[in-house]
Amino acid sequence: MASQGTKRSYEQMETDGERQNATEIRASVGKMIDGIGRFYIQMCTELKLSDYEGRLIQNSLTIERMVLSAFDERRNKYLEEHPSAGKDPKKTGGPIYKRVDRKWMRELVLYDKEEIRRIWRQANNGDDATAGLTHMMIWHSNLNDTTYQRTRALVRTGMDPRMCSLMQGSTLPRRSGAAGAAVKGVGTMVMELIRMIKRGINDRNFWRGENGRKTRSAYERMCNILKGKFQTAAQRAMMDQVRESRNPGNAEIEDLIFLARSALILRGSVAHKSCLPACVYGPAVASGYDFEKEGYSLVGIDPFKLLQNSQVYSLIRPNENPAHKSQLVWMACNSAAFEDLRVLSFIRGTKVSPRGKLSTRGVQIASNENMDAMESSTLELRSRYWAIRTRSGGNTNQQRASAGQISVQPAFSVQRNLPFDKPTIMAAFTGNTEGRTSDMRAEIIRMMEGAKPEEMSFQGRGVFELSDERAANPIVPSFDMSNEGSYFFGDNAEEYDN
Rank of each mutant, 00 (worst) to 15 (best):
M1L: 08
A2M: 11
Q4M: 07
Q4G: 02
G5Q: 00
G5N: 11
T6N: 01
E11K: 09
M13L: 03
M13K: 04
M13D: 15
T15P: 00
D16C: 04
D16G: 15
D16W: 05
G17W: 03
G17R: 07
E18R: 02
Q20L: 03
Q20D: 00
T23D: 00
E24S: 06
I25P: 01
A27G: 03
A27K: 15
S28K: 12
K31L: 03
D34W: 03
D34V: 13
D34F: 12
G37C: 11
R38D: 11
R38N: 08
F39R: 07
Y40R: 14
Q42P: 12
Q42H: 12
E46D: 10
L47Y: 13
L47Q: 01
Y52H: 06
Y52D: 03
E53F: 05
G54D: 12
G54N: 11
R55G: 01
R55M: 08
Q58H: 14
Q58S: 10
N59I: 01
N59G: 15
R65V: 10
S69Y: 04
A70H: 05
D72W: 14
R75H: 09
N76W: 15
N76P: 00
N76H: 00
Y78F: 15
L79G: 05
L79A: 09
H82C: 14
P83V: 11
S84I: 07
A85M: 07
A85R: 13
K87P: 07
K87G: 05
D88N: 15
K90I: 14
T92D: 06
G93E: 10
I96L: 15
K98P: 05
R102A: 05
M105A: 06
R106L: 11
R106S: 05
E107S: 10
L108S: 11
V109P: 04
Y111E: 14
D112G: 09
D112F: 02
D112M: 06
K113R: 10
E114N: 14
E114F: 13
R117V: 13
I119Y: 09
W120M: 12
R121S: 15
Q122A: 02
N124Y: 14
G126I: 02
D128N: 14
A129M: 09
T130A: 05
G132Q: 11
G132T: 03
L133K: 11
T134V: 14
M136Y: 06
M136V: 14
I138H: 02
I138S: 05
W139G: 11
W139K: 08
W139I: 11
N142Q: 08
N144T: 10
D145H: 13
T147W: 08
Q149L: 02
R150A: 06
T151Q: 09
T151R: 07
R152V: 02
V155D: 09
R156N: 03
R156A: 08
T157P: 01
G158A: 12
G158M: 14
G158H: 12
M159E: 02
P161Y: 00
R162C: 02
M163D: 01
L166W: 03
G169T: 07
G169C: 06
S170W: 10
T171A: 01
T171I: 07
T171Y: 03
P173N: 08
R174W: 09
R175F: 06
R175I: 02
G177H: 06
A179V: 09
G180V: 03
V183N: 02
K184I: 05
G185H: 11
T188S: 15
M189G: 11
M189Y: 05
V190F: 01
V190G: 15
E192W: 03
I194E: 12
R195A: 04
R195S: 08
I197K: 01
I197Y: 03
K198W: 03
K198D: 01
N205T: 14
G209Q: 07
N211I: 05
N211G: 12
R213K: 09
K214G: 06
T215C: 05
T215S: 15
R216C: 03
S217C: 10
Y219W: 12
E220G: 12
C223Q: 12
N224R: 06
N224M: 09
L226S: 14
G228K: 10
F230I: 02
T232S: 11
T232V: 12
A234K: 05
A234Q: 08
Q235W: 13
R236P: 11
A237D: 05
M238G: 09
D240V: 09
R243I: 08
E244S: 07
E244Y: 02
S245M: 01
R246K: 06
G249F: 04
A251F: 11
E252G: 01
I253T: 13
I253K: 05
I253C: 01
D255T: 08
L256F: 04
L256V: 13
L256N: 13
L256I: 04
F258Y: 09
F258M: 11
F258N: 04
R261D: 08
R261G: 09
S262G: 13
L264H: 11
L264A: 10
L264F: 15
L266H: 06
L266M: 09
R267V: 00
G268M: 03
C275L: 03
C275N: 13
L276M: 15
L276K: 14
P277Y: 04
C279L: 13
G282W: 07
P283C: 02
P283K: 10
A286E: 13
Y289W: 07
Y289K: 09
E292P: 15
K293P: 09
K293D: 04
E294M: 07
E294C: 12
G295S: 04
G295A: 04
S297R: 02
V299R: 07
I301N: 07
I301S: 09
I301W: 13
D302W: 05
P303C: 14
P303K: 08
P303L: 02
F304P: 06
F304R: 02
L307F: 12
L307H: 05
L307A: 13
Q311H: 07
Q311D: 01
S314K: 04
L315G: 02
L315S: 04
I316T: 13
R317H: 10
E320A: 10
V329P: 06
A332P: 09
C333G: 15
N334C: 15
F338C: 12
F338L: 06
E339N: 06
L341H: 05
R342F: 06
F346Y: 03
I347Y: 05
R348D: 07
R348H: 08
V352P: 09
S353A: 12
S353E: 02
S353R: 15
P354M: 03
P354W: 02
G356A: 09
T360E: 02
R361I: 08
R361G: 08
G362D: 15
V363E: 04
V363Q: 05
S367Y: 08
N368Q: 12
N370H: 14
N370L: 12
D372C: 10
M374A: 02
E375S: 06
S377N: 14
S377E: 11
T378Q: 06
T378N: 03
L379S: 08
E380R: 03
R384W: 05
A387W: 05
A387T: 11
S392T: 08
G393D: 01
G394C: 01
N395C: 11
N397T: 11
Q399V: 15
Q399W: 09
R400A: 06
R400E: 11
A403E: 05
G404R: 04
G404A: 14
I406Q: 11
V408Y: 08
P410W: 00
P410D: 00
F412Q: 04
F412D: 01
Q415M: 10
Q415K: 14
N417I: 13
N417L: 15
P419S: 03
F420H: 14
F420L: 10
T424C: 08
T424R: 01
T424Q: 12
I425N: 11
A427C: 14
A427Y: 01
G431C: 06
G431Q: 13
N432K: 13
G435L: 02
G435V: 05
G435R: 11
R436D: 11
T437H: 06
S438K: 01
A442I: 14
E443K: 10
E443M: 12
M448G: 04
M448W: 04
M448P: 04
E449P: 13
E449I: 02
E449L: 13
G450I: 11
A451G: 15
P453F: 01
E454M: 08
E454P: 04
E455S: 12
E455T: 14
S457F: 01
F458C: 01
Q459E: 14
G460V: 00
G462Y: 09
F464E: 06
E465I: 00
D468R: 00
E469C: 02
A471H: 02
P474G: 00
P474V: 15
I475C: 08
F479W: 00
M481W: 15
N483I: 12
E484K: 14
E484M: 07
Y487N: 11
Y487L: 04
F488K: 02
F489A: 00
Y496T: 02
